[in-house]
């Protein structure tokens, strides 16, 4: 918990610098707001990037890490291109989201966070995304009834994809994968270790 005394101290800023990818850039923001203005999804952000940076400096740890704003980023890179101070804002947003999730502070029902996890798990099984299963798990996210409704809504799209051989109904039963998926998992595992070590090393 951040007490009033903690506010406006650099503790959280230091934490961000130590744990968040590109976090050391946060202090460079001069509050011009061009990132917020140029973000195509800007209006969906409770706290636009420059405000998040100010909140970090103000020590608002909980508000920042539990916020769903940085989950709104779609990596269009508009903000990075426009930032007069060269802040890698997209990366910082992802870094913050990632950090929040690692700490278990990310909002529970945040759809982007949920979808990212599903996507990852789906892909990790065989090294390729199973579109059918991914689609269905998305439709049935909120339960069986809404899943059916949602599926029917997209029925035509599904049929067309199948016609065009972009999706196969057989995917439901296993689906295609990469050769030697086991090797892939080893690679990923190793990458995960490196990444964890990197995270550990932040702030050292």
């Amino acid at each position: 918990m951040s007490s009033m005394v903690e506010k406006y101290r650099n503790n959280f800023l230091k934490e961000v610098e130590a744990n968040v990818e590109e976090g050391e850039w946060v202090k460079m923001c001069m509050q011009c707001g061009v990132c917020a203005g140029s973000c195509p999804l800007g209006k969906h952000w409770d706290h636009p990037p420059q405000e998040i940076f100010m909140m970090i400096r103000a020590g608002k740890r909980d508000e920042v890490l539990t916020s769903d704003s940085m989950w709104m980023c779609t990596s269009c890179y508009n903000c990075i291109v426009r930032c007069p101070r060269e802040l890698p804002i997209t990366h910082i947003m992802h870094g913050l989201a990632n950090y929040a999730k690692r700490l278990g502070l990310a909002p529970k029902a945040q759809p982007t966070a949920w979808f990212s996890q599903v996507f990852w798990d789906n892909m990790m099984k065989k090294g390729r995304v199973n579109e059918l299963k991914l689609g269905l798990s998305l439709y049935f996210k909120d339960g069986f009834v809404s899943g059916i409704k949602e599926s029917l809504k997209h029925q035509k799209l599904g049929m067309n994809m199948m016609k065009a051989k972009r999706m196969s109904p057989m995917e439901l039963f296993g689906g295609h994968g990469v050769k030697n998926a086991g090797d892939l998992q080893k690679i990923i595992k190793k990458a995960q270790e490196i990444e964890n070590a990197r995270i550990e090393s932040y702030g050292k």
């Binding site: 707001g33 203005g37 800007g42």
Partner: peptide, 11 residues
């Protein structure tokens, strides 16, 4: 003109 007034966050 599109943008954000950063004094209090007003789009």
């Amino acid at each position: 003109l599109h943008g954000v007034d950063t004094e209090g966050y007003n789009r």
